[in-house]
Design a binder for these strands. Sequence first.
DNA 1: CATACGTGGTG
DNA 2: TCACCAAGTAT
Length: 390
Amino acid sequence: MSSAGECDGTPESELIPDGNRMTRLRRNLSRWYAANGRELPWRATHDPYRIWISEIMLQQTTVAAVIPYFDRFLKQFPTVDVLAAADENDVLRMWEGLGYYSRARNIHTTARQLVAERDGTFPEDADELQRLPGIGRYTAGAIASFAFDRRAPIVEANTLRLYSRLLGYQGDPRSSAGQKLLWRFAEEVLPRKQPGRFNQALMELGSTVCTPTAPDCPKCPLRTVCRAFAENLQSEIPRPKPRPQITPVVEASIAIRRADTYLLRQRRPEERWAGLWDFPRFEVGPDLLSQADESPERMVPFLQQSLRQPLEKLTGVSAELTSVVTELRHSVTRYRIRLICLEAEYRDGRLANGEETQQWCRPEEFEGLAFSVTGRKLARLLSQRDIGSS
DNA sequence: CATACGTGGTG
DNA sequence: TCACCAAGTAT
């Protein structure tokens, strides 16, 4: 019986390269990075605040997507003190469209904590950093090494792939055993001098050369020490992550108009997009799906029937659906959502909850509120249409 | 150890 | 169109 890590007969304990190969690896990578490292907005500094913000934004998010957000965010909140003094809604507003909004809340919480408890300074130690909200093992290592040049290891998407290939590790690198091996390698490969720069070099190589599909091995400075390359296993390593099944869903978003305002609600803590503003939104039962497949306009009477009660229960008001504004599609986690956006005319009733979580809002006021992406798209459509009709 | 959490880009 | 992937963390 052999474990997943030794399918090819090599025990995991022997996968870590010896001293000579480590030395060659470090030298080759360092030279390569000097010539090939990209200039990124958060690389030109050792400011822990900037590095922290960039690392949080980069969690599960591409560099290209982050850059404009990073620039805007730093302009609005240039220091940890400014961030700590801001309202949460304004922080979320800057985060709008980036996803994983708990990151924005954690950033805000952490900023306040640092200002309150440490005069706005950051811990320099990875273990201390990891105690802060939203900072896990990777991010702690990244901040400690990039900002303070601590010898802290990192393992994330790029390095997980790079290390797995370098070691020729055919087991599951996300498993407990795989993680243990990779973190050990990450620690042992780290040089005494400029560990932060070296960590960045590892990630850079992983993201630009040792790519998920079609890695550019001929250009890789580490091909001579790469076990996957030696055995031509680049396309087998790392083992792909299993993906959950996608479920199609139909939802309806209702923009209830009352004079020159629309009803908005703040999503509850247990809902997706918790705390963000949205138009009242409902799942459309499978019984209406057949109607949904017809022209959307034909759905209006059916939706009027089926949504009247839920709408009253959720908001406290009743309204008459008038027309379909647009249809949006988006995927979120394991759902593919077809969102039918409708307009409705307010009839009667008063808001169920206080003005805290529901409010009548003029389109000009939409800009200041944080929405999810689909909520923002509908908000913009209504604003534009409103201007056009007035 | 599995799952929730978002969105946009790519082949 | 669609599956896959992205500088992960919290529970």
